[in-house]
């Protein structure tokens, strides 16, 4: 599937910058929340077959903690904040400063709620910086959390692309938290119709 007829490389660069600004603000928010430095990799923008998207976070069957938000407004899309179970545990220790009563790989109601709120804050700062940049109205839905297989979780964010082909465009940013290497991914999957709106708002000529 080719999503962009003209200036595809340039458009991918623009989307990378969109990811950079959004995730940069989210990383700052996370750093303040944890009172620790948070590093961020340069975002990657890629048109990937559905199968390969889950490979970004360890494969279809890898168990991950995912916070999902639907983005409504001028440029709708799906947003995921995905972390490994180890990273989730470390985030919770940093934030709640108590050891979990729940067993290995389990989460108490409070912990799930705290993780959901982290996702909410990060997604909010991602989207509000994107809104400031583009002048578009983007509002996140109430966040929802799942601890399950990556394939099962991510397929939910691919439905809008599903009607068009077997690939989806993904803006992926990796976070690294200091020396602890708590790794997180921010996935933004704009709906196919949203790209032209984003480009127009940023002054990129669209066909």
């Amino acid at each position: 599937m080719t999503l962009f007829q003209h200036d595809a490389d340039f458009k991918m660069d623009v989307l990378r910058e969109v990811g950079n600004i959004g995730a940069g603000n989210a990383a700052t928010a996370l750093s303040r929340l944890l009172d620790k430095p948070v590093d961020m990799a340069v975002p990657t923008v890629s048109l990937l077959p559905f199968e390969e998207i889950a490979n970004r976070v360890g494969g279809s069957e890898a168990i991950v903690v995912a916070i999902f938000l639907r983005v409504d407004g001028d440029a709708p899309g799906n947003m995921f904040f995905i972390i490994t179970r180890d990273s989730a545990r470390r985030l919770l220790q940093g934030l709640l400063s108590f050891d979990s009563a729940a067993g290995e790989g389990e989460y108490s109601e409070l912990e799930l709620s705290a993780l959901c709120e982290i996702g909410n804050i990060l997604a909010g700062s991602y989207l509000s910086s994107l809104g400031d940049l583009t002048g578009l109205y983007m509002s996140p839905s109430v966040p929802s959390i799942a601890v399950d297989m990556a394939g099962a979780i991510l397929s939910f964010g691919l439905l809008q692309f599903g009607t068009m082909g077997d690939d989806a465009l993904l803006i992926d940013t990796t976070f690294l938290e200091g020396k602890q290497e708590a790794e997180g991914h921010f996935f933004l999957i704009p709906d196919p119709e949203s790209f032209n709106k984003l480009f127009r708002a940023l002054g990129v000529p669209v066909e």
Binding site: M149, G151, A152, I153, L154
Partner: peptide, 23 residues
């Protein structure tokens, strides 16, 4: 069997698909 894929097997082979969510 990948996502949005189908396949046929016989002779004792296993058909396998991973990570079914809403699919």
């Amino acid at each position: 069997v990948g996502m949005a894929d189908l396949n046929v097997a016989s002779g004792g082979a296993l058909l396998r698909t991973t990570g079914l969510g809403s699919c």
